[in-house]
Design a protein around this nucleic acid. Structure first.
Length: 312
RNA sequence: GCCUUGGUAGCUCAGUCGGUAGAGCAGUAGACUGAAAAUCUACGUGUCGGUGGUUCGAUUCCGCCCCAAGGCA
């Protein structure tokens, strides 16, 4: 028996993924599954460019607004949530359409998280991070990893304390080095066809600038203020999102708004660039250039062929 | 009109006691296995404003010119 099918629409921020995803959903009896690490948070609408209520009323959307802004969420949870939702959609005879720019989430869905279910432990994490305050601390932390897991230490830069800490965490929690962990076979239950929006860099950057200005006009500052008022910690994961972390010091009166806005634009460009690096490496994406061809029609044609195509 | 201070990488600036120059940011490329909008790595040639002069050699010193900011009339 062949696997159920799903579509994924990926690309950098502000490239028009959402619109394309919705167009495909309308034509193909699809339902959108959000694949964005920030749109999952409630009350973070403007800064995450979440689909509007009107849009969500037209096309079913899933995994949007599923956690509180103060809550932590992980790739692992996403992989579970997304898989569950996709199964539900499939059971209705509809086509799941993953839309979003979080490449890591797509990877978790398609390749699985092969670390044998080693979870994260906030306490261990906190402790390790505290050790890496200065250059010497970073060096020692890396040194420590080298002692228990030389393979992983070799591929990680001492400055990358997030990954060095994670590797140490895995070892502390299981007694087995990350590089020695068993890698269970993972077979994705879905056949996922990936469509990428490849927008020309300069055009994309202009769109990012325009979108940030639009977000400010829509009241992003008020949105961030409201989150702080309801006691969401500036340290919270949700507050590390672009457009949020830059506005917190503005609200605290520590940083000029004008500078924060240009920081948001710059950080969005950097983010878009990282996304492109990630998706370029994917190797299984069917790229469409919106500035060159009629993306929607073409995307629809290939998506339809995939969706309705008979399997051998 | 005169005086002062500037004019060096896309931007902000450092520097060369005369031997054709380097930081931060921007930008580009890359990594990514339970934080991923996070985290991290690598990459720096540009008529040193223009033009004459001094000099073996000038972006550096001198003259003139242009431009900008400030001051005085």
């Amino acid at each position: 028996m062949s696997k159920p099918k799903a579509l994924a629409v990926v690309g950098p921020t502000a490239s028009g993924k959402s619109a394309l995803g919705m167009a495909l959903a309308r034509q193909l009896y699809g339902e959108i599954v959000c694949m964005d690490s920030m749109q999952i948070y409630k009350r973070m609408d403007i800064g995450t460019a979440k689909p509007t209520q009107a849009e969500r009323a037209t096309v079913p959307h899933h995994l949007v607004d599923i956690v509180e802004p103060g809550e932590a969420y992980t790739v692992a949870r996403y992989a579970e949530d997304a898989q569950r939702v996709m199964e539900e959609i499939t059971s209705r005879g509809a086509l799941p359409i993953l839309v979003g720019g979080t490449g890591f989430y797509l990877q978790a869905l398609t390749q699985g998280l092969t670390l044998g279910g080693v979870q994260s432990d906030p306490q261990v994490r906190e402790r390790l991070k505290a050790m890496a305050q200065d250059e010497e601390g970073k060096r020692l932390l890396h040194e420590r990893l080298r002692a228990v897991d030389p393979v992983t230490a070799a591929r990680l830069h001492p400055n990358d304390i997030t990954r060095v800490s994670r590797a140490l965490e895995v070892y502390e929690l299981t007694g087995i080095a990350m590089s020695a962990q068993e890698q269970p076979e993972f077979d994705s239950p879905f056949e996922i066809f990936r469509i990428g929006v490849a927008m020309e860099r300069s055009v994309l950057y202009q769109r990012i600038d325009a979108r940030v200005d639009a977000m400010m006009a829509q009241g992003l500052l008020e949105e961030v203020k409201a989150l702080l008022t309801e006691d969401v910690s500036p340290q919270a994961q949700a507050m590390q999102g672009i457009g949020y972390k830059e506005l917190v010091p503005v609200i605290q009166g520590l940083y000029p708004l004008e500078n924060a806005v240009s920081d948001i634009k710059r950080n969005s460009r950097h983010y878009a660039k990282r996304q492109m690096t990630w998706f370029r490496r994917d190797g299984q994406i069917y790229w469409l250039k919106p500035d060159q061809d009629n993306t929607e029609a073409q995307a629809l044609a290939i998506a339809r062929a995939f969706w309705e195509g008979t399997q051998a």
